[in-house]
């Protein structure tokens, strides 16, 4: 009784943005999520690191409802989202970026963002007015492009973008859903040094407005951005703590590093 009484005010003060408990997912014999517990606090950047194949992308897909976990619960801002579809989760403030970019290749950069704005507004059963003449929609889309350094590229087809620009657009599209919890799947992977720095600055700029779960191999970026770090190896969280704690953890030092895998 007394333990509960002590705990209650602390919980009320900070309902976590994301609380994962006992999440399990296996593909045949392979356990990709092995009883994962994870908390992202409001406004923090929580980095998730771990070697290639550890199950980081699989975790994000389950958080978004693209994959169904075998067991465990997921809460966003204190409410269970286990029964919700991907679309409803986006409505609750979740958004993700894709490790292997997943954009609309035949659309312009602007339209990729505009379509996300349109979906958020919920006015898509409109059959008559030309969408291209919707100035308000255009302008809204352009604010997200400006924020991610893509303003000049608005009329370019996605297919003509460089890899780095596609990564930036992934972020712009996610931001256009106005998320409260952003799940970033290796946003720096494949970027050059200058592009990485630019991405780090953009994410830093979002800090405190949006909670983030940042999956990233680039340790410079992780150390520059993260408030806390969790380490995932073979589907299991082997360590979780502040940047300093993780940096000095000998188990962690032996475990990770690698790149690129399944995407869109």
């Amino acid at each position: 009784m007394s333990a509960v009484a002590e705990k209650a005010p602390e919980q009320a003060a900070a309902t976590p943005s994301l609380a994962v408990r006992g999440l399990v997912k296996s593909f045949g014999g392979l356990i990709a999520s092995d009883h994962i517990d994870l908390t992202v606090r409001p406004g923090e950047i929580h980095a998730l690191i771990g070697p290639n194949g550890a199950g980081k992308t699989t975790l994000i897909s389950q958080l978004m409802g693209e994959l169904t976990p075998d067991a465990g619960t997921i809460e966003v801002e204190g409410q269970s989202i286990d029964a919700l579809s991907t679309a409803s989760r986006v409505e609750r403030g979740l958004a993700r970026t894709f490790q292997i970019t997943c954009l609309l290749p035949d659309y312009t950069v602007r339209d990729n963002v505009a379509v996300a704005v349109q979906v958020r507004q919920g006015h898509s059963f409109r059959f008559w007015k030309p969408v291209a003449k919707d100035e308000a929609l255009r302008r809204q889309a352009e604010t997200y492009l400006a924020a991610t350094g893509l303003a000049e590229r608005a009329d370019e087809l996605v297919a003509n973008l460089s890899h780095g620009e596609q990564k930036q657009l992934e972020l712009a599209v996610a931001l256009a859903t106005e998320p409260r919890l952003l799940l970033l799947d290796e946003p720096m992977a494949g970027l050059g040094h200058a592009e990485s720095l630019q991405m780090i600055e953009m994410l830093r700029g979002l800090k405190n407005q949006v909670s983030m779960l940042l999956v990233e191999h680039d340790m410079d970026a992780v150390f520059a951005l993260a408030d806390r770090i969790s380490v995932l190896v073979y589907g299991r969280i082997i360590a979780s703590g502040t940047v300093d704690e993780i940096r000095d953890d000998p188990d962690v030092r032996t475990a990770y590093l690698g790149e690129g895998d399944a995407g869109c």
Binding site: E66, V90, R96, P105, V115, V173, T177, C264
Partner: peptide
């Protein structure tokens, strides 16, 4: 173009 992308934007 991508049902997955469209679902991810809600």
């Amino acid at each position: 173009q991508s049902e997955r992308r469209m679902a991810a934007i809600g």
